[in-house]
């Protein structure tokens, strides 16, 4: 009985892969579809392979890239990989065939990119990574990486915590809601945070579990944490959605988020700023998706053969409750 179930499930997974694969041929969204090196009218052609549309953050990211391309007069060929690496590789190969000027992409996962990036290199097309890094040994495969420094985000979160509990020596119990297991932001935000707080023995991470970056999972896991740990002082969530879910769980347990349990979150979506204004979140470390303008600037530079830094950071900030009200109207995502 069980192995029949597994077979069915395996078949379903295979078929699902096949189906999604055929729906995601990159569809050029730019106006000019030149086949030569660059488009016929001389404008720059950028092929952008997006991860998907899995969150509000990602949607804002996509929107920013599209708008910036239009503003900069760059022809954008956009492809949505629906969070599957094979789709993204296929999209990049199509870009190579179409002989675009620059390829930019946010890798779905960190590994397995060497072959397709070598193909791009051989075709003489420069590659820019956005938002997420790859773990390739061969650094010549891409020109630059534009994106947030997740480790730094984790460090910022840790620094705020250390500062908040300055001067006391009472133990501080922290619970952590991790992002999707194995993803770069989850790994780095965890590592950066741990690096800072391990300096002080009063901070103790009593529980750490994945909440898959979703509200529902964040709430479910937090609810379990609240049952198994009586004395939680701080929640550190790897993204706002999990923090927002967890806040509900804290409220249902009869505690006040932001006061009884301090809440640290990363990303900076609009809902998080609303919660911060209501004093339910203490601090949000921004992870800025609005990197479109920076990307266009870099694209122009690499296409022109200018040298660019290996690592370009997106402009990001740290917002606390007193800044929330002022910053809220300006939040775009």
């Amino acid at each position: 009985m069980a192995h029949r179930a597994l077979r069915v499930i395996a078949a379903a997974a295979l078929a699902a892969g096949a189906l999604t694969a055929c729906t995601t041929e990159p569809a050029p969204t730019g106006t000019a579809g030149g086949t030569g090196k660059g488009s016929s009218d001389g404008t720059l052609v950028l092929g952008f392979a997006q991860v998907g549309a899995e969150s509000g953050w990602r949607t804002a990211n996509t929107k920013s890239v599209r708008e910036a391309a239009e503003k900069a007069g760059i022809t954008l060929k956009f492809s949505d990989a629906q969070q599957k690496q094979e789709n993204q590789i296929k999209a990049i190969r199509t870009f190579i065939q179409q002989k675009v000027d620059v390829i930019a992409f946010s890798p779905v996962v960190e590994s397995g990119w060497d072959t397709v990036l070598k193909e791009a290199k051989n075709a003489g097309i420069p590659v820019i990574l956005t938002d997420r890094a790859v773990d390739s040994q061969d650094t010549s495969l891409y020109q630059t990486f534009l994106g947030s420094d997740f480790v730094k985000e984790g460090q910022e979160a840790g620094k705020w915590l250390v500062k908040e509990y300055e001067g006391t020596s009472d133990p501080v119990n922290v619970v952590e809601l991790q992002g999707t297991t194995g993803s770069a932001p989850a790994n780095d935000r965890k590592a950066g945070f741990a690096e800072v707080v391990k300096g002080d023995p009063k901070f103790k991470v009593v529980a750490s579990q994945t909440g898959d970056f979703t509200r529902a999972k964040g709430k479910e896991v937090m609810q379990a944490f609240l049952k198994s740990h009586e004395d939680i002082d701080v929640l550190y969530a790897h993204n706002d959605d999990m923090a927002l879910g967890a806040i509900q769980a804290i409220e249902e347990a009869g505690k006040k988020p932001g006061t009884d349990i301090k809440v640290i979150s990363v990303d900076g979506i609009k809902d998080a700023f609303v919660a911060m204004q209501e004093k339910k979140i203490n601090v949000v470390v921004e992870c800025n998706p609005l990197l479109g303008d920076q990307l266009m600037e870099l694209a122009k530079k690499v296409a022109a053969g200018e040298s660019v830094p290996r690592r370009v950071e997106v402009k990001e900030g740290v917002f606390t409750q007193d800044q929330a009200a002022a910053a809220l109207p300006g939040r775009q995502y």
Partner: peptide, 9 residues
């Protein structure tokens, strides 16, 4: 339960 709809997840 979470007062929000998440089409992806």
């Amino acid at each position: 339960n979470v007062s929000s709809a998440d089409g992806n997840n």
